[in-house]
Nucleic acid binder design. Structure first.
Lengths: 188, 188, 188, 188
DNA sequence: AATGAATGAGAGTTCATTCAT
DNA sequence: TATGAATGAACTCTCATTCAT
């Protein structure tokens, strides 16, 4: 479903990389422009300002996760054990190859109290993630239990990405996915 | 004209608040100075540069946790159930009243790949936290299991603080501490 | 509100004037900008930093002297007496109308032990000057004598410019050129 | 005739060293204080401001030269050949061991058009130097010739110090003194 | 006399943004 | 659409100077 690969998308892709690695404030418009082979003035043909790039970057990643990952939870023609494994697989694939960790987590901590338009998208993503997980967990747990477990596992995943990022070491991270899977696979 | 006798510790305290709420790059020397009732130039009387304030802020909080929190784990004259409850109590007290979340977590995500002198202190703190937790868990679990659980709970705590911060809602956070306590209190 | 199309060369020309009159450290980026009708931030569009302006200024003057003055020495189709007169004429023309003296001499004394990239260009210029003079003097003197005389006359010229500058009086300076000419014109 | 070695003199001595090596504007009050083992605020007990240190430094060196060097010219109970040799000897002793060159020459070029109180002292020194030399040269040359030669040799000395300083090489400098001596010693 | 905290101006530099070409 | 020159505000940091202690 890859779309036109417009310049706009290229700018977003490069911005995502930079925001993850360098942070939002520490990434300049010149950094973004350089990464795209442009001059900084030229970016304003595509985005109104830096914040617009920030929001678009978050939305871009959010859309990817909704379409490619969270949607898996709702493919009820597949058994839930298969769905949860696919779900975790996709998430692991993404974060184990994502230099700089998770854009949502990073910007959540850097900008939480300052840029409300950003936190809005971040919250929406985390909620979609939690709901998708909870939807699957409800096959075995009560609605309330499922939601609590889902929230816990999203938080744990974010904390693990933070540690993985800090230590440049993915060992610990991997066990998170397996724990989630086992929540549904273990015989009760 | 002159003399207000601002101490290094005062500057650090104000900086910690600002760094947590606004982030590192988004906090200016003028912001810090203003919070201390000084002009921006005056801060350089106390700190060589902004990075020195950053490292000192991290070290200040780290020292507090080592002395006031992590040390509890090693007070072996107390029963482990009492120690873990005190330990969690102290951590909860801190983070439930800490506007802007956890300085270590926030700066870890904002600066991980950019300021190695910062990540050094952050790593040290997380390791001290993990070791203190593991030390208590070893009363009931193998050395290896204890360390795995400790790492998991530190990550989970960080992730929970992130969510609490994002949603301005402490509900979910509180259950993390209780889960850790129950790891040691439940009859096996 | 933009666009005045200031060229690099314009900035260099104004900088040379200012550096000669006020010295390097005492000339601010704002001074340079103002002389060019710009704001200080705008200069960074043309030069990476102040030192780059300094080196470019020295190089600009050096290139002028190489092309317009020192080259005269090597126009061997002209008799040496004509060459030396032209050579001295050009140098006099320059320094008698150069407010603030000689950029090379001034910056040599202000920055000799601090900015090695500057002293490099300054040395190169003085050496080119000495070699050009020596090349002409070799028509009447041995290689060694010619070089000694050349070095002496460059030093004397620099000292004379210093005095001319200090006293706002060109009398003494003018005799230096005549002495050099007479070195080649007098019957031995 | 060494006087009380007051703090004031110490500050001047350190300032002279720093001004010669780093230039006037590039030497901060903190630099001077540090060199004296003081804090920068303390200097203001001895000097009203930085310019006062600058003028005092120039005057200090000027007084030294008047008393120890230029005075030699007027000791008419000695033969002029002995006087000129002593004179040159003293000057060579000074400049061959003077890191950073000549304070008068350096500040002349850095501050000529900016600090008139400085140029005043500098001019006075150079004039005293020229007059002392001329006084001796008058034994063999007309008044006018003597003055012209004296001015020429002071300028040449300054130019030579500049080159010596720039190249970190004293070879060429030494011949200047000998040339002056030979002006009086050669049989006509 | 010396200290050390503070000042206030200004240094060099960066940055998001604008806009004529 | 892209460029590149310019803006103006803000940034980190330095400096000469002041003054209560």
């Amino acid at each position: 479903m890859a779309t036109k690969k417009t310049s706009k998308e290229e700018i977003i892709k490069e911005s995502v990389k930079l925001f993850k690695l360098k942070g939002y404030y520490n990434t300049s418009m010149a950094d973004i422009a350089k990464a795209c082979g442009l001059l900084k003035g030229s970016i304003y043909h595509h985005f109104e300002n830096k914040d617009a790039i920030g929001v678009s970057s978050l939305t871009y990643i959010h859309d990817f996760f909704v379409k490619e990952v969270y949607s898996i939870a709702y493919k009820t023609h597949l058994p839930v054990t298969e769905r949860i494994e696919l779900f975790i697989q996709k998430i692991d694939d993404y974060f184990l190859h994502s230099e700089g960790g998770c854009l949502f987590g990073n910007l959540a901590l850097e900008l939480a109290s300052e840029k409300l338009s950003f936190t809005q998208v971040i919250k929406e993503d985390f909620e979609a993630w939690e709901e998708a997980l909870a939807f699957m967990l409800k096959e075995k747990y009560s609605d309330k239990e499922a939601m609590v477990l889902a929230k816990e596992y999203v938080a744990l995943t974010q904390g693990s990405i933070m540690m993985m990022n800090l230590h440049n070491n993915s060992e610990q991270y991997l066990q998170v996915g397996q724990k989630i899977i086992s929540l549904l696979k273990e015989e009760s």
